[in-house]
């Protein structure tokens, strides 16, 4: 074989070689996913291997008979809506604040990133200690100075919902603020100069220039947060385990309980697939909005 032919052959192989890690990764993701999907159509129940059979959509249909399913679905959707509004709203406010000319801006930006560096489970456990139901918890102790509390954080349904929301918001707010701050810094300056010439005030500039230009980024942040909020697990698992009174049981916690606590793998996987479809549907809708907003901004 001549050197030129050998080189040509090597060059032909190169793309496949470069793709190998991606292919391995794809198989690594696709295999468990396909297995889970397959199990969702079976009666797989760990303790009763002899009962294993293909049951078509039985697991999906039986979901509607589960007493827990209604509550789990309601909490999943309700939590997502509130968490996205809260986190994107506050994230936008923080981004606008850090974008303005304030002293110590660089330090504040660095400090803001701290929650992002902590694993969510650690964040949740830290808050769990701070949110002890009596004044032994630092949060209730601090609230007592302003005449509030003690709040029964994890021991009451609404307290538990609020706790999960606060912990999740604390951990993810910097991410939203960071996306929006980056976007703010990249916005063109001309529209602002023109508006200033026309005598527009700060509120008018925010409403008519900043927000429309930021819209694609806001929708992007909403998409990320919606996807994460729909399938939130770690914070709930480490703090309330879905209680009390199932108030913080979402579809993910429910799927975990069925699959890993009660070993009904078939049913657990069906619930996980429903959750996946929900995530895909919501992300698809938000991505369409994002496309429309991007188009508008370009025009």
């Amino acid at each position: 074989m001549t050197t030129a032919r050998r080189r040509r052959r090597q060059e032909a192989l190169l793309p496949y070689l470069l793709m190998t890690p991606a292919l391995v990764l794809l198989v690594g993701i696709l295999y468990p996913f396909s297995l889970g999907l397959y199990y969702s159509f079976t009666s797989y129940w760990l303790q009763y291997p002899k009962r294993f059979r293909f049951v078509w959509f039985d697991n999906y249909i039986s979901l509607f008979e589960e007493t827990l399913f209604d509550r789990a679905l309601q909490f999943t959707l309700g939590f997502t809506v509130v968490a996205v509004i809260l986190q994107v709203g506050l994230g936008l406010a923080i981004a606008l604040f850090l974008h303005s000319r304030i002293p110590g801006r660089a330090v504040l930006r660095a400090l803001m990133l701290l929650p992002l560096m902590m694993p969510p489970v650690i964040t949740a456990l830290m808050w769990k200690i701070m949110m002890a139901s009596t004044n032994a918890g630092i949060l209730n102790y601090l609230l007592s100075f302003i005449g509030l509390g003690p709040v029964n954080w994890f021991g009451s349904p609404w307290g538990a919902i609020a706790s999960v929301l606060i912990i999740d918001t604390w951990g993810n707010l910097p991410f939203v603020a960071l996306i929006l701050l980056g976007a703010l810094q990249a916005l063109p300056t001309e529209p602002y100069e023109a508006a200033r010439v026309d005598g527009a005030g700060p509120m008018a500039m925010l409403r008519y220039i900043t927000l429309p230009l930021l819209a694609p980024f806001i929708i992007l942040a909403c998409t990320f947060r919606a996807m994460d909020s729909l399938r939130i697990f770690d914070v709930i698992y480490a703090t309330t385990m879905g209680g009390p009174n199932d108030a913080t049981t979402n579809l993910h916690i429910m799927a975990y309980q069925f699959a890993f606590q009660w070993y009904q793998i078939g049913k657990g996987m069906a619930q996980a697939v429903v959750l996946l479809l929900l995530v895909v549907l919501v992300s698809y809708m938000l991505m369409r909005l994002w496309n429309q907003a991007s188009e508008r901004t370009r025009q």
Partner: peptide, 8 residues
């Protein structure tokens, strides 16, 4: 009982 019984 304790106020947070449901989480004890």
């Amino acid at each position: 009982g304790p106020a947070n019984w449901a989480n004890v």
